[in-house]
Design a binder for these strands. Sequence first.
DNA 1: GGGCCCGCAGGG
DNA 2: CCCTGCGGGCCC
Length: 507
Amino acid sequence: MAHDSIQLPCGGDGACMRCKVTPPTEETLTCSICAAPWHVGCLASKPETLASTLQWHCPDCSGDPLLPPSVATDGSSSELFVAIKAIEADESLTEKEKARKRQELVSGRVEEDGGNGKGESSVLDVLDESLNCSFCMQLPDRPVTTPCGHNFCLKCFQKWIGQGKRTCAKCRSTVPPKMASQPRINSTLVSVIRMAKLSKSNAAAGPLKVFHFIHNQDRPDKAFTTERAQKAGKANAASGKIFVTVPPDHFGPITAENDPDRNQGVLVGECWEDRLECRQWGAHLPHVAGIAGQSNYGAQSVALSGGYEDDEDHGEWFLYTGSGGRDLSGNKRTNKEQSFDQKFEKMNEALRVSCKKGYPVRVVRSHKEKRSSYAPEKGVRYDGVYRIEKCWRKVGIQGFKVCRYLFVRCDNEPAPWTSDEHGDQPRPLPAISELKKATDIFERKESPSWDFDEEGSRWKWKKAPPPSKKPANAADLKEGKRTRKAIRHSRKLSTRERLLKVGNKKQ
DNA sequence: GGGCCCGCAGGG
DNA sequence: CCCTGCGGGCCC
């Protein structure tokens, strides 16, 4: 082997910059400090034991090519490295699984097993954070606890000791000889993990699935502006914390179970200052768009703010126009002029799905709905649940085709603009003749898909209950996207910085 | 009150 | 990544 005075790592293409050959994985060493890959064959000095490869420092980082591998200075990166090596060494995993686990490690995100664990247990999350075995990154199997308070699987720990190590793999404290020779399983921890796992599986099977927005806890209680938002005020604000625990694709009312803060749910008639605040209570999540939905799944909510002239609002029922058909190029973000036909696609299709399936749609009204007497005086108000009785396309008053929807109120709470004359009784629907007159093509076909139960006080699904599961892939995609976005966002401005910024603004 | 402009959020 | 979106503040 030629020993040039300059040692070089592998380049971006994976090829060794010295011999130009792309070494196989087993001939590649990754520096535990800078994570750069190096071709073992071209190294002047190689680590001698498996253990020392785990904490190997490259010539660039060690500053001395002959320096023997020593205690890592950067605990986190070396832990990551150890964990990745552990994954790679695990023969029970396929290459695909290994790749996924590595990805999870690097991204700091652990996917829920089987895809059915979306009702994640916060208890277990906390455990995941603090109790994981530093070697395999899983909840420890037969956990042993060092005097310094770190937990490992018995097997992982024994393997480590077998390599001649006498320090804690997490904090580098010395492991007492007695513990090294005879590690004891921490039985308290065993039962804690068992209980947590049990509660997790119960939560996954139970009817109450609580969903937490990723990184939601990092958000302040009020809307905030980021560094990039240049003007003061809320025009460019990012929204604050979401207070309710319903998933973004939750249909129907938001009940007390999903309102941990107040334990009352979002009440019909509840008002907020603006769309950003409305979003925080989950009634309508998009802070500009009028329709919340997914074209292959349904629409969860709409916002009325009087954007279309031929919309009609009669309180108990109203006509709604779909989105699109307007030229929004340049900065005309809210151009009112139609310039082409709307089609049943994207959000319009989402509304159509909700119509066909009979899903309930939450409705919020904004004070901007100037032509309507049902609009709130100011801010945004939650007006309960409607169903879309019919949807169709017609030529709008601007000469282009628009998607139209007939919304009919079907909430068992009284509307905010009425006295509760019906008490606990189901609220009667608007007279069909009245609707027919207004829509001129309205015809009622079948009975609605959902209704109230015998007592008239609870939801009951007659035909098409709202999907209990999230749409395949779509939800996962969404979570993944959020995560990636959150990561990107946190790079731009850390949570701490953001909070500080909000704090400064208040002063 | 209308136009302009900004950036966030999320679907696709 | 790109595009869209019934916000919201500010300036005229």
